[in-house]
Simulated assay, not measured.
Amino acid sequence: MTAPEFSTATARAAAERDELADWVARFLASPGSDNAGLAVLLSDPPRSWLGPVLLPLDRLHRLAGPAGHPVAQEVEEHEWRDDVGELAERIDEGLEPAPVIVSYREGDLLLEDGNHRVEALRRAGDDHVWAIVGFDDPAARDDFIVRTEAQP
């Protein structure tokens, strides 16, 4: 599980200080995420970051997930690691997992980091997730904000 220093609240505080890019890089390199390579990839070239924002699970394009969802690889329920079920139970008990990391590309929300957290949230009956969203440029970020605000 990720360290307490990486929560929705700490991401929000980093965003208020205009330090969200640093928060994302530190989070991805931390134990639990163990994704330092992705941190480098998502910081070069630098991105515009937004978040944390609450996103519907069914809008995320996931690498792996259940049938009937936008996923690259369908995974049967019994094939998930045991820790996903344990995390789902902890979410049922009130745990809020760290935000997921998402890229916005050509109108799609691509889940970069957090597939197991998203699956655990889904199993716990949640239909939204806190996310940090990366954009290739500030114009794409602004377009996303306008589109999101226009939705009912």
Rank of each mutant, 00 (worst) to 15 (best):
A13S: 09
A14H: 02
A14D: 04
A14T: 10
E16D: 08
R17K: 11
R17H: 08
D18M: 07
D18T: 13
E19Y: 00
E19W: 00
L20T: 01
L20I: 06
L20F: 00
L20M: 03
D22R: 10
D22Q: 09
W23H: 11
W23E: 07
V24K: 00
V24Q: 02
V24L: 07
A25C: 06
A25P: 06
A25Q: 08
R26Y: 02
R26L: 05
F27A: 11
F27Q: 05
L28T: 04
A29L: 10
A29P: 12
P31K: 01
P31F: 06
S33F: 03
S33A: 13
D34A: 06
A36K: 00
A36E: 09
L38V: 08
L38T: 08
L38C: 03
V40A: 15
V40P: 09
V40L: 15
L41A: 13
L41H: 03
L42S: 07
L42A: 10
S43Y: 01
D44F: 03
P46C: 11
P46H: 01
P46M: 05
R47I: 09
R47P: 06
S48K: 03
W49H: 13
G51E: 04
P52A: 02
P52L: 04
P52I: 06
P52D: 04
V53H: 01
L54Y: 09
P56K: 14
P56M: 12
L57E: 03
D58S: 05
D58H: 09
R59F: 04
L60C: 03
L60T: 07
H61P: 04
H61V: 15
R62Q: 15
R62I: 13
L63M: 14
L63W: 08
G65R: 03
P66Q: 05
P66L: 07
P66R: 04
A67S: 15
A67F: 14
A67L: 15
G68A: 01
G68N: 01
H69R: 10
P70I: 07
V71P: 03
V71D: 05
V71T: 14
A72V: 13
A72D: 13
Q73Y: 00
V75C: 12
E76M: 09
E76I: 14
E77Q: 00
E79S: 11
E79L: 10
E79T: 11
E79A: 13
E79D: 10
W80Y: 15
W80D: 12
D82T: 15
D82N: 12
D83C: 12
V84L: 12
G85V: 02
G85R: 01
E86Y: 12
L87K: 05
E89S: 13
R90T: 15
R90V: 15
I91L: 02
D92S: 14
D92M: 07
E93W: 02
E93A: 11
E93Y: 05
G94N: 11
G94M: 07
L95V: 07
E96V: 14
E96S: 10
E96Q: 13
E96T: 15
P97L: 08
A98P: 05
P99R: 04
P99T: 12
V100N: 02
V100Y: 02
I101L: 09
